[in-house]
């Protein structure tokens, strides 16, 4: 008996509002974060991830008030990421009600940060987000929202994150992200079968079978998706029922 596979809707937040867009074009206001989070909770979401995409420095405090308001009303794990730079950023998010914080660029530029944060507040709070792209048969880690290529290989970096105390890995395939073509099960299974911490699949969900394949072939512990839920193509309930019918343990 194992834990249920998690379905995690991901919400982009800009200046305190949930926004949605396709491939970063035509970003539109999708509404109040509390209402949307409540709706997902009622549908059976196992966790909710907020990604702060606010570009301006001044707008960054908005995410704290969003998290605080959502945490007053929604009682499932809340994960928050986007622009988290240091221990204080992590602490501030946890203190307003986030349960987990994702770090990405900051972890690559200063890997000791993973140790420092997890030593002080526990490994369950830290999710390292790893954005990868396949280049000449190797999966390479990118930072700064996918704009900067590093020399790190995805497999090595994920093992290092685990060793340094990361609680989970959020693995996003940049090749698949936004394509609705399915997750990259090759890199997913390679990472998931070799780490002992949970791996969340991200990037490429276009239908319910994609979620199933990420779990079956990619061995993902959780699947994260944005557009298939935001645009009403599927509800979380439908995703759960689909997976259940295929024999996957879901809540």
């Amino acid at each position: 008996m194992s834990v249920a596979k998690r379905i995690i809707p991901c919400l982009d937040v800009d200046k305190g509002r949930v926004v949605k867009g396709t491939n970063f074009i035509d970003i539109v206001d999708a509404g109040d974060p509390v209402e949307i989070a409540q709706k997902y909770d009622n549908e059976g979401a196992d966790e909710i991830t907020f990604l702060d995409i606010t570009a301006s420095h001044e707008g960054r405090n908005n995410i704290l008030s969003v998290v605080e308001k959502v945490a007053d009303e929604v009682f499932i794990p809340l994960t928050v990421g986007g622009g988290v730079k240091n221990f204080n950023d992590v602490r501030d998010l946890l203190s307003v009600g986030a349960d987990k914080v994702t770090i990405n660029t900051a972890a690559v530029s200063n890997p000791d940060m993973i140790n420092n944060v997890t030593d002080r507040i526990g490994r369950q709070c830290i999710v390292v987000a790893v954005d990868v792209k396949k280049i000449d048969n190797d999966y390479i880690v990118f930072t700064h929202g996918g704009r900067t290529q590093t020399t790190l290989k995805a497999y090595d970096w994920c093992l290092e994150c685990q060793k340094r105390g990361a609680g989970e890995i959020l693995l996003t395939s940049m090749d698949k992200d936004g394509t609705k073509d399915g997750f990259d099960v090759e890199i997913l299974s390679k990472i998931s079968n070799n780490v002992t911490i949970p791996v969340i699949a991200s990037g490429g969900a276009g239908n319910l079978d994609h979620l199933y394949q990420a779990i079956l072939k990619g061995n993902a512990d959780a699947v994260l998706a944005a557009s298939i839920f935001h645009f009403g193509e599927y509800t979380i309930c439908q995703a759960k029922e689909y997976l259940k019918a295929k024999g996957i343990s879901v809540r």
Partner: peptide, 13 residues
């Protein structure tokens, strides 16, 4: 067993 993930994190019965 080694292939079980620890911490036990997530929803269980």
């Amino acid at each position: 067993k080694k292939d079980m993930k620890v911490p036990h994190m997530g929803w269980n019965k």
